[in-house]
Write a protein that binds this DNA or RNA. Structure first.
Lengths: 327, 327
DNA sequence: AATAAATGTGAAAACGGTATCACATAATTG
DNA sequence: CAATTATGTGATACCGTTTTCACATTTATT
């Protein structure tokens, strides 16, 4: 059913119907007629047709690498909260870190005339940037800093530094790390830097044997711990890039009689639920994921409304949560 | 820029441009011209305008109660995986279990002419059903059974029954439960029933003192455990409605010298990451959340394609994962 | 070579709304 | 009371696409 058919049924002109849905001038008489017909027919105006004429979509595209991850889903929730409180709709795509799919999604967003785009920590290629520049809508990137774009990010380096410093103050002399690829600007590069800086600043030398690479899973963390503790000399404190990795590492230690924190201290970043129930409970850095999502959405809305070209960067704080894994 | 302007720039007719994007007859010559102009201008056709004419949106509405929950986000990921592999877009709304917001979202979906809707376990009112019936698109409900609608659900009752039976077989004589409100058909009512049936079938009598209500959080689980263990007589085995609740309960036990599984066994449903790292590691039932999402999406696509009216119900299996909390 | 079939083409009419316009009536002002 | 302003009204052009149509070419078939 379209507006003309409906207007006939309601016994008014289509102009009147249009006005009814757009708060224009309308007599009480017609308003009533329309409401009655609405109940009878269940007519709902087509958003697409409205968009063609008005050019407004109230649509925001959101690209998420992995919806099922605790951190991503929190950010997504934050985004959703503020966006749909403001009447914006979310076109969401879960890209599984597939670069090709990300580009495709941007193309999709363009066709759908989204008012803006929010991107969660992805690995950016030049192609990404080119496509993004071509789209004439505001962008906000969550989780990493990038020149020329609005960003909301965490203080990854600071958190890694603080945690490592904490362990050293607690007596760690041979600090180790289970990190992730530096291709990941935030969880990788920044956290590595924070760790290494803290070690250097404390005047300790870093033993290459005390570092391992891991994926973002518990199993991978478990295996990395296995490799880490297979050398003759062992670290007495391990910083892990993420809680999940640390959980895997703790599991390995528990199964192999390595006592935490007595033989080795352990800490990580993320403050996932796991960290609290793990045994021993995990010292971690809380990053404000949901807040990041909210702030990103606010930033985007601001850019949409004011159409400004200036780039904004917001770095969120972290909180260190000391638990049993660092005694 | 619209198709007419672009056609002029490319030096072809607008019909040709339209054909280019829709695989119609088109000479190589014009195809080339268009591709060239495309590179230059970055023109992208308007999805809204296309929709007005063709009436196809390739849009699916998804209502999620709590994106940041582990189970919901897994379901959402499953949905997203199959839907966008088929070229469907996701209009997602996080309703925070706000009934009013759910109705509003359905209205939104109608205006946007979504091809179908997937709903995650919400508490359904008559208003919900009325609005849903009015929409002439297929629905799939995930997480609970409801008459007249396609459903993908878990065997909540079976899982609760199996876990309780397991504890009893391991020697539990005084089974207890920390459950959630029966308003929640799946996590509430069904799991209560499974527990109670298993107790009855084993010929045990259920002591009212051994049951507590909890919210879906760790803290609430912690407090429920506190109440549960404050009575003179204590249960020697506790079934928790969710892993999160169990994690809170385990925490309480650990802090108060109640040994698991020696003093009391514990188990729950969900197989969250937490359960594996908790101490002692938690016996749990794995529900196939991601699969549920995928199946729901498949079911929806099927209904969209075949326009069938028959109602389908798919109940997914569960797997019992025995860990240390039941020794 | 004549005909039939396949392929390619642009003009123009939809699609379902909104915005502008010219105009009518009612309420307010000087 | 006339002049102004506020309020309400329906016809109509327009938004950016696709689709149909009538027609023009080329290729394949007799």
């Amino acid at each position: 059913m379209n507006i003309s058919e409906f207007a006939v049924i309601a016994g008014v002109s289509k102009s009147a119907v249009s006005r009814y849905f757009n708060n224009g001038y309308l007599s009480a008489d017609k308003k009533e007629k329309i409401e009655e017909a609405l109940k009878k027919t269940g007519y709902a105006p087509s958003a697409a047709a409205r968009t063609v004429k008005t050019r407004v979509t109230k649509l925001v595209g959101v690209i998420i690498p992995k919806l099922s991850s605790e951190s991503c889903s929190k950010v997504a929730e934050g985004i959703s909260d503020v966006l749909d409180a403001q009447g914006y709709k979310l076109l969401l795509v879960n890209t599984a870190n597939d670069s090709h799919k990300e580009i495709e999604s941007l193309e999709l967003f363009r066709q759908n005339r989204v008012d803006g785009v929010i991107l969660l920590a992805t690995v950016f290629s030049d192609l990404h940037k080119a496509v993004m520049k071509k789209m004439r809508v505001p962008f906000v990137i969550v989780g990493q800093e990038m020149k020329g774009f609005n960003c909301v990010c965490h203080n990854d380096e600071g958190a890694a530094f603080a945690l490592t410093k904490l362990m050293i103050e607690k007596g760690v002399k041979k600090p180790g790390i289970i990190g992730v690829t530096r291709d990941d600007a935030a969880a990788g590069a920044a956290r590595w830097n924070g760790f290494l800086n803290a070690v250097a600043k404390a005047g300790l030398t870093f033993n290459e044997d005390f570092s391992e690479m891991s994926e973002f899973t518990m199993d991978s963390g478990y295996r990395a711990a296995k490799r880490l503790f297979s050398h003759r000399e062992r670290p007495d404190g391990v910083f892990c890039a993420t809680d999940t990795i640390a959980a895997g590492a703790e599991l390995y230690c528990r199964e192999n009689g390595i006592s935490i924190p007595d033989d080795v201290m352990m800490c990580a970043i993320g403050d996932s639920k796991m960290g609290r129930v793990a045994y021993p409970s995990l010292t971690t850095a809380h990053l404000h994921y949901k807040t990041a999502g909210k702030e990103a959405a606010e930033m985007l809305l601001h850019a949409i409304k004011n159409g400004d070209e200036i780039q904004r960067i917001l770095q969120l704080d972290f909180d260190i949560i000391e638990r049993d894994s660092t005694s």
